[in-house]
């Protein structure tokens, strides 16, 4: 058996070992190294890179806590936007459904830079939205949407929502329509049938969507790089800046380790919360 399955799996597994596992371990190792002369990484065993970040209130508040807040806000908005859309797509069939799914997936397949360009045209100072609002006399001076926290939130919601729709759709489609029908037959209102049957059964999809979008947004660097300003220093952006612009690989590595650890902690908290939510609903039913 092993002789039959190992050779075909080996190339992919070895590639992942060499180009994912080793590099990730090397990030962990590099986070304890020192930077000498502002450019050279020197092997060491120091916690300086960690204390430099964790001991600095500016970093903690303006990057770590800021990233957590942005990720939570954008994830919540994405979920609220995605839920009705997923419910509606689940009802459609044929051509309409194909078109809807293609449109939902377009932002995932079209590159971020391209999409950002479109949003800049709409949102910049003399852009479409500001011109329209001023022409309609809703406000008089252009509002700063891009190169601002607003732009970061809009873009993160824009690229996050499709993931939530698709993972919700997965679990909605698994619900047997007979269940809802059965509930309706024994006298449950449409609302009750949704709340007691459909909603609990979409929890796995909702959770999967939350996990993807939260992780993506918490570690985002491209969006704050493209449409953020000096007040949107998300932690992923600091990693990018320290690694590529300041060449401080040990510090960037330590930040990555912190990022992964905080992300894992928050996801574990979310898993516990979701487990309890589902349990509570079950108990309430008894």
């Amino acid at each position: 058996m092993i002789r039959r399955i190992l050779p075909p799996l080996a190339p992919a597994l070895i590639a992942l070992l060499i180009f994912v596992a080793f590099p990730m371990l090397w990030v962990l190792r590099t986070s304890f190294n020192e930077l000498a002369g502002g450019a050279y990484v020197v092997d060491a065993l120091t916690l300086d890179n960690y204390t430099r970040f964790l001991g600095d209130p500016w970093y903690l508040v303006n990057t770590l806590w800021f990233s957590i807040r942005i990720a939570i806000v954008t994830t919540v908005i994405s979920v609220v936007c995605a839920y009705p859309v997923a419910l509606y797509i689940a009802k459609t069939t044929g051509f309409q459904r194909n078109i809807l799914i293609a449109l939902i997936m377009a932002p995932l397949l079209i590159g971020l830079v391209t999409l950002v360009y479109g949003w800049i045209v709409i949102f910049r100072g003399g852009g479409l939205l500001n011109s329209l609002m001023i022409a309609l006399r809703i406000y008089d001076d252009p509002v700063r949407y891009m190169w601002d926290i607003k732009g970061v939130v809009i873009l993160l919601v824009y690229i996050g929502t499709p993931y939530v729709v698709l993972s919700l759709l997965d679990s909605i489609e698994r619900i047997s329509p007979f269940l809802v029908e059965a509930a309706r037959n024994v006298g449950a209102s449409r609302w009750t049938a949704f709340w007691k049957i459909v909603f609990p059964m979409t929890m796995p999809g909702l959770y999967a969507g939350l996990v993807i979008v939260f992780s993506l947004n918490f570690s985002a660097f491209a969006v704050p790089l493209m449409v953020g300003d000096s007040n949107t220093q998300m932690i992923g952006l600091i990693v990018y800046r320290e690694a590529l612009l300041n060449n401080d690989l040990p510090f960037a590595s330590a930040l990555s380790v912190i990022m992964v650890a905080v992300n894992a902690l928050i996801l574990a908290g979310m898993a516990a919360l979701f487990g309890r939510l589902i349990l509570n609903r079950l108990e309430a039913k008894r």
Binding site: F19, V20, P23, M24, W26, V27, T30, S215, L216, F218, S219, A220, F221, G236, V239, Y240, A243, L244, L249, A252, S253, S256, M259, V260, N263
Partner: peptide
């Protein structure tokens, strides 16, 4: 996350 994946390969 791609940020970490890219950084890891870079380093």
């Amino acid at each position: 996350p791609t940020t970490i994946f890219s950084l890891a390969l870079y380093i």
